[in-house]
């Protein structure tokens, strides 16, 4: 992985994880989100395919990539982008490994040597897993639609707001995450649509 990519990633994430971006005191979760929380708590394992569409000012058209997401509660989260833009991000315990199989090289970041970095990746994991407990201190959550559920997340802190203007999380009727919309302050946006969910849940 080119050093600059990693550097940029880490630098930006380090900024997000700076003390000033520390989580706010937890507020009570809105009642509308309690079923979602319970559903997520029952999820033991999940895999899904995704289509990511990125609209960047630097690009003439949309940039679409396909891939898979897998995660296990308390275990690994694997974000795999399929060719031609092949890459893999594995979040496991106290480490994240980013690799570009087609281009050679991998870089692992150990959170034990940098707890701030660890918090950042936990945030990414929280967004992808729609982990409300994690997200609530960082974002102001509001329900934009109850059926099927749709949430809007607005950063609570200016440091985070410099990277993300808002996040939209859409769920289907089974409370599975089917869409993530990320809007950046410069107007660039990313839409991630999830499908073919395979969910393994614990008994209620």
């Amino acid at each position: 992985m080119p050093l600059v990519t990693l550097t940029g990633l880490l630098a930006t994430l380090a900024l997000l994880a700076s003390p000033s971006a520390a989580p706010q005191p937890t507020e009570a979760l809105p009642q509308d989100l309690v079923p979602l929380r319970e559903s997520l708590q029952r999820t033991k394992k999940l895999s899904a395919r995704f289509t990511q569409t990125r609209h960047l000012a630097a690009l003439q058209g949309a940039l679409t990539t396909e891939g898979t997401l897998e995660y296990e509660k308390g275990g690994r989260l694997v974000w795999r982008t399929l060719p031609p833009a092949e890459s893999e991000l594995v979040l496991a315990g106290q480490k994240v490994t980013i690799s570009y199989p087609g281009m050679g090289g991998a870089q692992t970041i150990d959170f034990s040597s940098d707890p701030g970095m660890g918090r950042v990746f936990e945030t990414i994991r929280a967004v992808l897993q729609a982990d409300l407990e994690e997200l609530q201190p960082l974002f102001k959550l509001s329900v934009t639609r109850r059926e099927p559920l749709s949430l809007s997340l607005l950063p609570r802190k200016p440091e985070l707001a410099r990277t993300l203007r808002s996040i939209q999380l859409d769920f289907d009727r089974q409370l599975r995450l089917v869409h993530v919309g990320l809007t950046e302050p410069d107007g660039d946006s990313t839409e991630i649509a999830f499908r073919d969910h395979v969910v393994q849940t614990a008994a209620p």
């Binding site: 940029g8 990633l9 990125r54 630097a58 690009l59 990539t65 890459s87 991000l89 990320l182």
Partner: peptide
């Protein structure tokens, strides 16, 4: 291709 990766969310500028 790199701009399509998840981490490009934050590395776009670089």
């Amino acid at each position: 291709a790199r701009l399509g990766s998840l981490q490009a969310l934050v590395t776009k500028g670089d």
